[in-house]
Structure formats: structure tokens, C-alpha cells
Nucleic acid binder design. Structure first.
Lengths: 314, 314
DNA sequence: GTCATTCTCTGACCTTAGTCAGAGAACCGA
DNA sequence: TCGGTTCTCTGACTAAGGTCAGAGAATGAC
């Protein structure tokens, strides 16, 4: 409260700088409270690095390389950490049968025990944040935390153009088809649908986006960019885990600006009546329902939106 | 989203464990995003420790001991950090004229320049958190962050029993009187009021609480515990900076349980009509207005509450 | 079968962060 | 003016966290 000097701002409604000021206040408070306590609690019995690692290995065996990526560690350093956990009898590191260059790590039962100690500490930390508050305050804090968590997670999702044959893309598409199969009362056979072949979603005839969270794919969206016709959104899907992050809206915005950048002035799409929330999304994103512009057997609704190059955003 | 194993819980409304689970999710997301980025941005040119220090010194000269307390550093360590900043020409350390044991630190102009670089980095970090979000999401994130910030700050406030002659207590009382002087249309002279002398707010005749945030006093509250009469709240005050943290309510709860612990079954207080929000607080905390029980010249309202030993709280 | 590549590990090295035990200067109260 | 206290500093030390340059095994492409 006494605290650091502040910018001088005074707008009525939160201007960008005002937002930034508040984010900074948040960062400060949170790193002080959560950060300090976090290290304090976690590090009581072993270095934070080891604790984090133990934690990240978790239930199932993990490839060393994956851990390295996930935690962003130097391979030498990680190796040493693993050695240390190994001599403490907490993990076992062994070559992976299919590719003996790669090694996998799994927790021993001692490791699992240690991990559950860390778990308890983490609970303790969480409790210590709530403890001084009365129950109304607790409820509000938890709700606000959930909102921050959700939105920061959303901000962490990276959307990239990838080839539709990339493993992450394929994984998304398979999940998407599986979901359609469930959702449509007619079922869904990819073969019967008017699906563009991969070539149509690859430059120069189109493009394909994959969203990833901490390296794991969590959604995809394709765009057809036919010569002399409207651009078309295809195969947009968001993993159930990643819903509520505004990702679909982000895909649409991205595709829209890509389409505009390629000289298209109309974006369209078709969809199935079973996908009610998608339909709501399209409407609220500015799409208008139009007569069928193709004879996709699985489609019940067709939408269209006039697009323009966005003004210098940000 | 893929993320760590979770507890198994399923209550309708957030049970304690459910709250704790959410707090943990929050901690995880936030330390990953904010923590990592924070160190990354801040530490680009110099160690985080030095950067934090540079930051904390800020505009005005600071006593070394104050910095030490504030940042919770070992005196040897702090000394070394200062030496390092000094050889870089960023700060000047000199004995304080009034007490030459104490030394004060201030930034040189180079130090101020360096600090504004850090400032810019911090803005950059804040920006990078907002950047991937659309404007509605940004607004919601910022609002939720402000809520988290406020409540975590509230949870950081420590309330302790101190002697009413302690400098922190005196500071609070002076601020309190100064504020009454402003607020009452009659002004306020402590001498004319029925103020208990300090002895009455000191065990065994009473007690005095001071709330501190990061070591700085931010509020106080006194309690009279007269033999054979109702316990009485006196001199409750919260610093303007610290309002909205639920601190007054916390004081009341604390005093109430202290009074009950000392065998009192009634808590009472008087207040001035100018203190409208305090009056609202008393009512909502379960106090009922009663006829005057004293002839305090500055009082317009008298309140009373029946109290009992709280059931095992938490 | 050869060669380039991928993956993990080891050794050598470095900075940061922090602790602890005094030393020495300045101050304060009696 | 003496003795205890307060405050800062120095030296000696430690652990954590991390980087870098290979070495060596396994693999895949040709």
C-alpha cells in the first residue's frame, strides 16, 4: 500500500496504461505472496528444482526430453537433477525400448511418497493464503483466482500455422472427427463429407492453424482460400479441456485477418444443427445466416461475413 | 490443461478442498506465467536481487535497515548488494546525519536511469500478459487481478497486540486524531474527549491492536476490559490506503473474541454521526443501536452487541 | 556399412543468493 | 565516562541453479 512509485494516469475508464499499472500491482503482490511462500513451502526438504521435477514427472513414465522441454531446462542440468533423485531412490531412469537413445523416468514408490508430501505442502500453501480471510472473502478470492487462471491460460495458448499433416494437426483432426461422430445424430463418416483434402488447407490454397498450450495441441482451424470465391472456414475445433478460453473466437479473428490479407472480402462456413454453441459463436462474431452455398450432407446452417483488413490493431 | 493430477472432489458448492484445489491451479498458472516472465524480464541486465533492491530504493533516500526489513534480507547480504550497486555508480550510501550508525541510500541519476529501464521491462511484462487477449478478456483479466491483489493484500495484513505507546501505535493514533479533526464539523480535540489513557488499553485493563502491512502500520483498534462492565471498542482506525480490505471487520471480530475470552458478554462502542460508513459496518457486524451509555461529547450513536465465545473457528 | 543426427550424460566452470560470526563505529542511559 | 546496544560491514563459507563443450551410444538415411 505504501509501495512503489506509480505512473501518473487518471483516465475515467481503464486506458491501456492503467491496465498495465494494475497488472503490475498484481504481479508484485502475487510474486511476493505466492512466489515467496511457494519456494518456502516447497523447498523445505529439497531444492525447488528437484521438487518441480518430481512434481512434473507425476504418475506416468516420462521421456527425459519431454521433461526438458516442459520445464525449459538445460540437458546437462536436468541430467544432474535426475541423477540426484535417482541416488535418493525416488526415480528410475531407463532407456526407452523403442528408441534406446531416449530415456524414460518414472517414480519409485518412495518417489510417489515424496511427491505426496509436496502435494500436502502445496495444499498447506493454498490454505495459508486463504486462512486470514473470512469466508465471504475466501469465496471472492477463489472466484477471482479462477478467472485470472482461466484468462492467463488463454493468454498462454499459442496459435501457429502448421502443415495439416503435422502430428499435432492430425491429432486435432482425429479428435474432431471422433467428436462429430458422437455429436451428430446421424453419426459422421469423414468420407461422406465435403472435406477438403489436406492440400486445400496448405499454402497457397489455404492454411491450417493449431493452438497449443505448453506444447500440447488444444485446437485447430482450417481456411480455404479459393481463387475468385469466398474464403471458407473448415474444421474448427477446440479440445474440451480448453473450452471457455475464447479460443474459437481467436481462431475466427485470425482466419478473418488471414483471409483479408489474401484479398478476400467474404468469409463463410457451414455447420451442423447439433453444434449449437458454435452457431451462437458465429452469430456473435458477426456472421449472418445465408442460403446453402454448397451441398455438404452434414450441414444444416450456412453463414457468411463480410470482412475487411483490420485497422492497425493492438 | 493437460496438467497435474488433481484431487478427487465433487461438492456442489466449493468445499474447502475445492477452494484449495483452485488456489493451487492459480498458483501454478501464475508462477509459470508471471514468475518465469518476471525473472526473465527483470533479470536481463542484472541479478534479480539487485534489481529488486534498486526498485525498492525508489525515489527517496532510504535507511538501510528499513530496506533490510522490507525485503527481508540478511544484513551481510544487503550490504554486499549495496556495495555492488555502489561500484556500478547507481547508488550513494552515506551515514545519516542524525544517527551516524544508520546509513541511507539514494539513487544517483545513473541509478534512476537504470530503474526506469526496469520500469519499462515491467510494463513490457504486463503488456505481454495482456497482449494475446481481446479487449473484453483484457478488461476481465484486469478486474480479476485487482480483486486477487486486494484480497491477497488483505490476507497479508498482520494484526498484533502491541503496547499503545509503541511507535506504530502512536502513529496510528495521531493519524486517527488528525482524521477526526478533519471529519467532525466541530473539529476534534483529544483533550475534550472521554479518551481512555493508555493504561486502560494495556493488559490487564484492556488491549491494543495494530495491523501492519509489510511492516508498515495500517490500522489500530483498542479494547477496554473493565471489571464488571461491558467491554468497549475504542479508537478503531484504518489507514485510507488500506480501506476496502475488510480490516475493520477483522478488528471487530478479533476484539469480540478477545472480549469473550476475558469473560465479557457484551461489547459496546460510541461513534460520531460523521462516520457514516463505520456506522454501517457496526450494524452489519451485528451491533444494535442503544441509548447513550456515556456522555462522550463527540458521540452521537451508541452501539452494543451480545457476544459469546466463538465456536472453534476456521 | 557408413555417416550424420539425435539424445543423454559427464566434467569443468560460473553466478546468484544466502548464512554466520565477528569487528568496529556510533549512540544512549546512568 | 563507561558499558551495553544498535547498526553496518567484512570475510569465510555454502548451496542452488545453471551454462558449455564435448564424449559416447543408438538410430536413421542412403
Amino acid at each position: 500500500m505504501t509501495g512503489a512509485p506509480q505512473h501518473e494516469t487518471s483516465p475515467e475508464h481503464p486506458a491501456p496504461t492503467d491496465q498495465i499499472r494494475r497488472v503490475r500491482r498484481f504481479n508484485r503482490t502475487v510474486t511476493e505472496r505466492v512466489g515467496v511462500l511457494h519456494d518456502h513451502y516447497l523447498g523445505r526438504s529439497r531444492p525447488v528444482g528437484e521438487a518441480r521435477l518430481l512434481w512434473e514427472i507425476g504418475g506416468r513414465p516420462q521421456d527425459v526430453r519431454r521433461l526438458r522441454e516442459r520445464l525449459g531446462l538445460d540437458s546437462g542440468y536436468l541430467s544432474r537433477l535426475l541423477r540426484s533423485l535417482e541416488t535418493d531412490g525416488l526415480v528410475v531412469v531407463e532407456p526407452k525400448p523403442r528408441d534406446r537413445r531416449v530415456r524414460t523416468v518414472r517414480l519409485t514408490s518412495a518417489g510417489r511418497a515424496e511427491r505426496s508430501v509436496l502435494d500436502a505442502r502445496s495444499d498447506e500453501l493454498a490454505g495459508s493464503l486463504l486462512q486470514p480471510l473470512n469466508s465471504a472473502q475466501r469465496a471472492r478470492l477463489v472466484a477471482a483466482m479462477a478467472e485470472v487462471d482461466r484468462l492467463l491460460t488463454a493468454a498462454t495458448v499459442a496459435v501457429d500455422v502448421v502443415d495439416p499433416d503435422h502430428p499435432d494437426a492430425r491429432w486435432c483432426l482425429e479428435s474432431y472427427f471422433a467428436e462429430l461422430q458422437e455429436a451428430f445424430d446421424t453419426g459422421f463418416e469423414p468420407g461422406r463429407s465435403l472435406l477438403p483434402d489436406a492440400g486445400e488447407l496448405r499454402p497457397p490454397k489455404g492454411l491450417f492453424l493449431v493452438a497449443r498450450l505448453y506444447g500440447d495441441p488444444v485446437g485447430c482451424a482450417g481456411l480455404k482460400l479459393p481463387h475468385g470465391a469466398a474464403a471458407e472456414v473448415k474444421r474448427m475445433w477446440v479440445a474440451p479441456d480448453a473450452r471457455g478460453l475464447g479460443l474459437a473466437r481467436r481462431f475466427l479473428a485470425e482466419l478473418e485477418s488471414e483471409a483479408a490479407r489474401h484479398g478476400h472480402d467474404t468469409l463463410r462456413l457451414d455447420t451442423n444443427k447439433a453444434l449449437a454453441s458454435a452457431i451462437g459463436l458465429y452469430r456473435s462474431a458477426g456472421f449472418r445466416e445465408v442460403p446453402a452455398f454448397n451441398d455438404e450432407p452434414y450441414a444444416h446452417h450456412w453463414f457468411e461475413k463480410r470482412i475487411t483488413l483490420p485497422a492497425a490493431a493492438e
